[in-house]
Amino acid sequence: MKLSIQVNEGPYQHQATDSAYNFTKAAIEAGHEIFRVFFYHDGVNNGTRYTTPPQDDRNIVDRWSELSAEHDLDLVLCVAAAQRRGLVDEGEQERNKKDGNNIAPGFRISGLGQLIEAGIQSDRLVVFGD
């Protein structure tokens, strides 16, 4: 089955992204296709490579990046939400004349249409949030 996941909260503050990660992993292990993981609201904060948790804690951002690399996961940060919260890729850096970018490997920034498309193209959409 084709599944999509929406993540509405950032890392560490709320369990939503942990739950979404565990769910996504279990879905892949069960042989399902993940069409897209869409990060919205504070969920876009899951996509900054500057996250540096203590060594004895999980690295939520790296975990998503690694899962993406292993399974070719499409991790999308909503552009409007990302701009508000300072998540920047190279394109956004150039467009908005910022002095750097911070997006983590495996993530990309795109429009809200990607969420609607995920809803249309997937058999199920599961929302994780606060």
Binding site: L3, L125, V126
Partner: peptide
């Protein structure tokens, strides 16, 4: 959890 999602038509999250 994954199995429940696939066995139902749709999911509503009371976030």
């Amino acid at each position: 959890f994954v199995k429940l999602v696939t066995e139902h038509d749709k999911v509503q999250s009371w976030v």
